[in-house]
């Protein structure tokens, strides 16, 4: 299950110039949601809007293409999108909800559907769940420290961040790129990420991320019947330019490698938690394992 179940994997980018202009990579999420909004497949989508602090995301329900465009781009700190999943069907009145999220948030989507403990008539209204690749996430304060203390860029003057090729990069408003080695960011990773066993959002309808594809393109996994149906419609409508994943560099090999690395490292962490403490008789005392 390193890459999860999928029906199709391609390298893709949006054809809409206004979306590509400010896209993190291939503009897949924005383009797919914009298409789904147009077609009435979704009535709105839960995306990362702007929070009270600079570069702090806050979940919002986007109901127009402009709102989707305003929410574009990656901000490397926590955006609790699932907090709006019920509200989207209530005060926003959506019958068909789109939601984008990290692999753990896709797990939350599926748990909400399979074990709807507090999700009265919510699960059946989740019409499109888009997952994004994720190695780990940072608390706002950790992200602030990385950007301001390590990269010496005030958050207010940053224009883009990305993670790739072993570095955390910050682009500032005067066009400079400031970088720090990814290994120095480890101490700022939110602890809950260390038990995560999913890199490519195995449980999404469609998942996407930059890894595996050339700059400006994204790797896309089409996973579920629902995802397949919507992806096919979007392709037929000319929303995306695609290349077979086998023909691009670095391709699935790198995705597989990073996914395997993440899962191996974190499985080890999960295992270590089982013998974290010591009982009176000298045997191991465990921390809680969420997968049991």
């Amino acid at each position: 299950m390193v890459l999860g179940n999928y029906k199709e994997c391609v390298s893709a980018r949006a054809t809409d110039r206004s979306i590509l202009a400010r896209a993190q990579d291939g503009g897949i999420v924005t383009q797919l949601f914009a298409f789904a909004l147009d077609e009435g497949i979704i009535d709105g989508a839960i995306v990362a809007g702007q929070g009270p602090e600079p570069w702090q995301p806050e979940p919002i329900v986007a109901m127009t293409k402009q709102e989707l465009l305003d929410a574009q781009g990656t901000r490397y700190n926590i955006c609790p999108n699932m907090a709006l999943i019920k509200e989207a069907t209530r005060s926003y009145g959506l019958d068909r909800v789109g939601v984008v999220g990290t692999p753990c948030q896709m797990q939350a989507v599926r748990k909400a559907q399979l074990y709807p403990v507090g999700m009265r008539y919510v699960g059946d209204k989740i019409a499109l769940a888009l997952g994004i690749f994720c190695m780990e996430n940072f608390s706002y304060q950790g992200f602030e420290a990385m950007t301001e203390d390590f990269c010496n860029v005030k958050l207010e003057s940053a224009v883009k961040m990305d993670i790739g090729k072993g570095k955390y990069s910050v682009y500032n408003s005067s066009g400079e790129v400031k970088q720090m080695p990814l290994k120095h960011t480890l101490k700022f990773v939110q602890p809950g990420c260390h038990v995560c066993l999913d890199y490519v959002a195995n449980l999404a309808d469609v998942s996407t991320g930059s890894v595996g594809s050339p700059d400006g393109w994204s790797t896309v996994f089409v996973r579920t019947k629902k995802g397949d149906d919507i992806w096919a419609k979007a392709m037929a409508a000319g929303c995306f330019e695609t290349k077979p994943i086998e023909e691009v560099k670095p391709g699935l090999e790198l995705v597989t490698k990073l996914a395997t690395d993440k899962i191996t490292k974190n499985q080890k962490h999960v295992d270590e938690r089982a013998t974290f403490g010591v009982k009176a008789d000298g045997s191991a005392k465990a921390l809680r394992n969420p997968y049991l």
Partner: peptide, 28 residues
């Protein structure tokens, strides 16, 4: 059993599930 156990990743589903809106997501 979640945050003190080093397991929370800030998805927000708890806040959505609360029937009395007693949970707010603050800094994730």
């Amino acid at each position: 059993d979640v945050i003190n156990q080093s397991l929370c990743m800030g998805c927000g589903l708890c806040a959505a599930s609360c029937p009395v809106r007693a949970i707010e997501m603050v800094y994730g």
